[in-house]
Each structure stands twice: as C-alpha cells, then as structure tokens.
Design a protein around this nucleic acid. Structure first.
Lengths: 89, 89
DNA sequence: TAACTAATTAGTTAAATAGTTAAATATAGA
DNA sequence: TCTATATTTAACTATTTAACTAATTAGTTA
C-alpha cells in the first residue's frame, strides 16, 4: 500500500502507467516517450514493479512491461473506501 | 493532482487524514498521536493544506484542521477512472 | 503589560530520490 | 565465436524530504 502511493507520487511513473494503459510496451519503447536516460526509466520501472503496479515478461532481447490494472484499482479503491462517509461512523 | 499524490505518499500524512476522517482536530491533538515533533507535524499539515486535502480554521489560540473528503475522493476517483478498462478503448 | 500557550517559521542535518555516465549482462544473429 | 542490441546494475551527484531544536508569531488571561 505504502509502495503504491510512493510509486504514484512521481509524475514520470504515473505517465508510464498511462502509456501502459493503452498497450504493453518494451522498456525501450517506454523510454522513447521521455527525455530522460534509459537507466532512469529502468529504475522507475523497477519501483513500479516492486509496487506490483506493472509486470515484466522477458521476450528474447526485450522486456515487455504491462500494467497490473487490478492492483492499481484495488489499492486505490481500498484506500478510498476507508474515507467514504458511510464507513464505521 | 501531483500535489495530492505527493501528499499521500507519506505514511504520517495518510495517518493524519485517517485521524481527521473521524473528527476535526487541532494541530496539537493531531501531534499527540505521533512520536515526532510538533513542527514536523505542522509541516505535514502544510503539505496536506497545499494539496487541499485538509483545511484549517483559526479558532482563538488553536487551528482546527478538517479533512476535505471531496477533494480526496475526486482526485483519486478521477485518476482511477482514467484506468478503467472501458475508457477510450 | 507580562506571562503563558499553541502553532508556525527558520535553520540545520541526515537520508532518500531522481537523474547522470560507464560498465555489466544477456540474447540474437552473422 | 564475434559483434551488435536491449536492458539493467553500479557509482556518482544534485536536489528534495523529513526530521530536529531554537526562535518567532499570535492569541489568552492574570
């Protein structure tokens, strides 16, 4: 949970998730969308992976990244539910 | 939006929000729930205020903090909606 | 006004973060 | 096997963050 919010706190990482929403992409394809170095993107991807917001599949020379929509949605909706007015009052 | 996720990325700040979910509190009351200094709490409150997740009302010697549930819910549900499978596909 | 209290601001420090370049790893293909 | 390519890891740097203590601000009350 903490990992999810930490991961989402960076705009580059949120943008990576937005890219992956549309289609799975290799690390290189993702990096092309940004002005920062590939190693920097690689690190962002690792943080997203640790938060389980994305998964990576090795395919030959490439790593194909995909978003874990379920994890994202359940983490955020779980947190939000706690703040619904109806809860435990 | 960026401010909201930044604000939510710190566990102390999320816990402050959880406290304020139950009732409005003064800065001092909030601080009592934590093992860190009052100035540290004050700074966390400022960050939450900048993100508009809480508001403060001056009441005599005290500042009474309250959570802005609407801002929290709309920020998170707005973000989540973007990732709903049904969207723009 | 003086003394007291609640909270914030200022200044410092240590740790974490996000970026860089260079080197290492792993796979593909000639 | 050699070379090229995709990606990650390592080492380093600059910036930001979260904490602390001390000082300040603002309001209350004797």
């Amino acid at each position: 949970m903490s990992g999810v919010f930490k991961a989402l706190s960076d705009p580059t990482r949120r943008e990576i998730l937005a890219l992956l929403r549309d289609k799975d992409m290799t690390a290189g394809e993702i990096a092309e969308h940004f002005d920062i170095s590939k190693p920097a993107i690689s690190k962002h991807l690792e943080i997203l992976k640790e938060a389980e917001l994305v998964s990576a599949e090795k395919k030959g020379l490439y790593r194909i990244y995909s978003i874990n929509l379920t994890v994202l949605q359940e983490a955020l909706s779980g947190f939000m539910n706690y703040f619904e007015k109806e809860n435990d009052l």
